[in-house]
Design a protein around this nucleic acid. Sequence first.
DNA 1: TTGAAAGCGATACCAG
DNA 2: CTGGTATCGCTTTCAA
Lengths: 344, 344
Amino acid sequence: MSVDHERPTGTDRPTLNDVAAVAGVSAATVSRVINGYPHVRPQVRAAVQNAIRQTGYTPNNAARSLVTRRTDTIALVVSESESHISAEPFFAALTRGASRAISATDRHLMLLMAHSAEERERLERYLLGGHVDGAVLVSLHGLDPLPGTLLTAGVPVAVAGRPLGDPDVPYADVDNRGGAEQAVAHLLATGRRQIATITARQDMSSGIDRLRGFRDALQAAGIRPLLPLIADGGMGQEEAQQAMAGLLETMPDLDAVFVASDVMALGALHALREAGAPVPDDVAVVGFDDSVLAAHTDPPLTTVRQPVEELGGALVQLLDAQIQGKAVESPVILPTELVIRAST
Amino acid sequence: MSVDHERPTGTDRPTLNDVAAVAGVSAATVSRVINGYPHVRPQVRAAVQNAIRQTGYTPNNAARSLVTRRTDTIALVVSESESHISAEPFFAALTRGASRAISATDRHLMLLMAHSAEERERLERYLLGGHVDGAVLVSLHGLDPLPGTLLTAGVPVAVAGRPLGDPDVPYADVDNRGGAEQAVAHLLATGRRQIATITARQDMSSGIDRLRGFRDALQAAGIRPLLPLIADGGMGQEEAQQAMAGLLETMPDLDAVFVASDVMALGALHALREAGAPVPDDVAVVGFDDSVLAAHTDPPLTTVRQPVEELGGALVQLLDAQIQGKAVESPVILPTELVIRAST
DNA sequence: TTGAAAGCGATACCAG
DNA sequence: CTGGTATCGCTTTCAA
């Protein structure tokens, strides 16, 4: 209960030597106990563990990392521009999954967001500086050179979502193509034939793959998707709403639409309501993501659920393999699942 | 392009000495340049900066931290149980705000989530172990002793949301009470008089404060809120829906309801639709949060916007003050704003 | 099985 | 204004 001489911040934390003194052994032995080195007499081990408890010792990460050259830290890198409102649930779930996997291996999660070009540069320097044992990269845009740069510098990398550029970088993704196929198959199974799609931006693999799945499913059913049935929905709800309105005008006998995201599907629902086309009686609607929105739209939205949290875990495993020098089996593609609600 | 002898992870990064050698100065001088120490000749400074660029040098954090006893790292601590879907946008926005503020001071953000009691303990040890310069605590439950523990151990702490326990811990919060008052004032201004509320769980300050604001506003208007007009909405949409149904039964001449969150307000809207009570003609509804949902409900929801991203920034500032030994002005209460839509 | 001692890379004090 | 050097706390040979 000494009150005077309070140092700024826990200056007086016990060190390895303090523990060693209490246990009556050398610092080296304490270190061995802490790191689970096998050849230590049980008695000594016990004594050391006692001393650790008594002193309330915690290893100093900096000192440890200085000599081991490990940081026990994994970076999760998020580009700011992606943190659109609609992407937040995705980001949150991915983070949760990654966090869980990271703590399971007794490491820590550093969250790196670039809010500007300048920070983007700082971020790159940091990652190259050996401050983390690996990096999960989320939401790369177009042909971002970052993964390649890191890999050649020897920094383990795992990318969320199929990267558009280098196909050799380890990545994990949800089965966007398969999900789209499921959605279309479901529409076909319920008797729809004039099926349109509203696509998301085609500069991300998810957008591309969902469109591809759409096409594949129709082709497999012997239907050639008509070009006018493919509308660019941009990213947001409003754009999708306009796209839907456009589709209705061009193709009045349309009976179903597969929309590349739930938020966009919401826009489509609005357009359909305005046009007086009942859902699902006139037009069936399928979204993608199974976001919170989906259960709450009117009518509730049939959509494709993607295992985002698992994706986070898979990405960490991809890093783990690289760190441990094991064979990396990339890509990891996680299955999606159709969630049927009232809109179809 | 040497392929053999690939060391595990960038083992051969340049050090301070390498830079010093290239620049033809001592390591001490290089250090001074890096840390912006003023008394260095411009020429020398330039030479050093050149050498840094040439060598691609990045300071080794571990080594630096070992001697400075700073980590340049701020922890963001999230209790797992809070990461309900409905809380995700809050969490995402807070993180973004904190991240921005943290990088502004050239530090890094460590994201710590406790997924179990065991991990919760590990987390506490970690924080106490001096591995971070400060911790932002999100979503404390009830009377969590963590902030107190950390503070007495000399670890700077900032809590998101008014903590129920120790009132002396530095915290920042949005003006839940004021927001509720605004909401009720708006209802009163539009002629409503039979105003009910559906509260959120009363084990978090946000729930308590929103109810308090509701009461205060009515009292200020000379209306004594009738007890039957206060219904416990628990947390979720379903519970709120039931609560709304109950309210309608007890108080059939109700003309407005203030609901403690948007998700819960959605439940209320459902109940009202089922009861055949048009919104806002029969009953006006106000939510809280201005979440993504709010703009998309039917009708779009009047709600209270809270500056969550700013909250994240404020929390970091609170830590900053403590780290720098300046006076900490806590609490910081950020203003809320009424967003009027079609539900009122 | 254990101890002694040499660093890991950067900072900061003390000379000069 | 700049250089030499002790030091931070821990891991890891090398000997014993």
